[in-house]
Each structure stands twice: as structure tokens, then as C-alpha cells.
Design a protein around this nucleic acid. Structure first.
Length: 203
DNA sequence: CAGTGGATCGTCT
DNA sequence: GACGATCCACTGG
């Protein structure tokens, strides 16, 4: 499996990157366990003008500092006091753009994922939804800011879906962002059972 | 399947 | 002191 080159992330169009991340493979090797999943759902967060982004208006704090880092690193933060969210940082240093990994289709280590998620059996819900992605892959805040071609956490080249199999919708859970909540920044593989979100959005 | 409400805590005002 | 880039259990159809 070939790791995606930094040049993949270092491009200026975060929407295009979010779209092209579909089908790629997220891999972690944590505490001796390898788990991998095919990315089936993403969301883009744009720099400066995007009210749904942590970096809206250029806001820069200790929490979101990694969003301002160079392309190809992770940005992981805690949400609702209990869920970690994992993002892929894109563009160039000091331009805070990122892609949230919202769902994976388990490819390897599904039994381990189930154990981490306190489930008896492997099923489609293991890594469906951003909180479940990090739980299944054992990603947490300590993994923020690391390069996505490291041995611990990386993204490998997968099989991209056909353009006609890519769905687009508004993002989930960002209603506080006013009109920006309606932007078509969410991408998913149509018909894939591991995609999260209300059915209505997944056409 | 859709809608609702509780859990839970780091971060920023 | 308030609020999340969420999840799950539970309700009612």
C-alpha cells in the first residue's frame, strides 16, 4: 500500500481534496494493533470565511493550532466532551483548511475495532460517524499534529469511486453556522452502508 | 425510520 | 458559565 504523497494535501482546493479522499484508506498502528478503513464520507472546512470552521475569521487558539500547520498533518480535537474528531489538514501553512473524516468502511482489524467500540460483533456502525471513526481507529488528541505518512497514522492510496457514485450535501451538525450551514461541503459514497447522517441527505 | 433528550468536559468568553 | 464539526437509547409510527 502506497501512502498518499504530501502533494495530495498541499493543494489549494479543500473541496476537491475532500472529494478525492473518498476511497482512500486510513490506517492506524496503535498499541501494536493495525486497523484500516476505506474513507466513505468527508466534510470540508474552508479557511477564514467558513462560519462552521474552528478557524473562522482567522481565529487561532491552542486547540486549533494544528489547522494552521502544513499540509498533510492531522488535526484531532475533543467534541461534546467525549468524542474525538479527526481531520486532515490541507493547503499551506497558516491557511487553516481541513477535511473531517466522517465515516469508514472497515477493511482490516474489524475485530479490534469492535473491541474498542465495546461491540460483540463487527457491523456497519463500527466506524460510521466521526466519533466512531476515532474510537474504532484508537485515534485521540495525542495524535493531533502528526504527519499522515507516519507509521502510526497514515492514509494509503485506495480505489476512488466513480464520479457518479459521489454524493454531495450540506454538512452535519453545524446549524449554528447560519447560511454557511447550507454549503455543499459534505461528500460521501452513494449507497455505502457505512455512511452516516440522515437518509434524506444521502441520495 | 424520525424525533427527542441526556451524557460529559475541554475550551473560550 | 455556556457550548459544541456527536452518539445512543428510547419513544412513537
Amino acid at each position: 500500500m502506497r501512502k498518499l504523497p504530501v502533494s495530495f494535501y498541499a493543494r489549494p482546493d479543500v473541496l476537491q481534496i475532500a472529494r478525492e479522499l473518498l476511497g482512500q484508506v486510513l490506517v492506524t498502528r496503535i498499541r501494536g494493533k493495525v486497523t484500516a478503513g476505506r474513507i466513505v464520507e468527508t466534510e470540508a472546512y474552508k479557511a477564514f470565511t467558513d462560519k462552521a470552521s474552528h478557524a473562522y475569521g482567522g481565529r487561532r487558539t491552542a486547540r486549533n493550532e494544528d489547522m494552521y500547520g502544513p499540509a498533510g498533518i492531522s488535526y484531532v480535537y475533543l467534541c461534546y466532551g467525549m468524542h474525538h474528531m479527526m481531520n486532515v489538514v490541507t493547503n499551506v501553512k497558516d491557511v487553516p483548511e481541513a477535511v473531517l473524516i466522517r465515516a469508514l468502511e472497515p477493511l482490516e482489524g474489524a475485530a479490534e475495532m469492535a473491541k474498542r467500540c465495546a461491540k460483540r460483533e463487527t457491523d456497519k456502525t463500527l466506524s460510521r460517524g466521526p466519533g466512531n471513526v476515532t474510537r474504532a481507529m484508537a485515534v485521540e488528541k495525542s495524535h493531533s499534529g502528526i504527519r499522515l505518512n507516519s507509521d502510526v497514522l497514515f492514509i494509503a492510496e485506495g480505489i476512488s469511486p466513480a464520479q457518479s457514485d459521489i454524493g454531495v450535501s450540506k454538512r452535519i451538525g453545524v446549524d449554528y453556522a447560519g447560511s454557511d450551514a447550507l454549503l455543499p461541503y459534505r461528500f460521501f459514497i452513494r449507497g455505502n452502508a457505512c455512511v452516516s447522517g440522515p437518509r434524506l441527505l444521502n441520495k
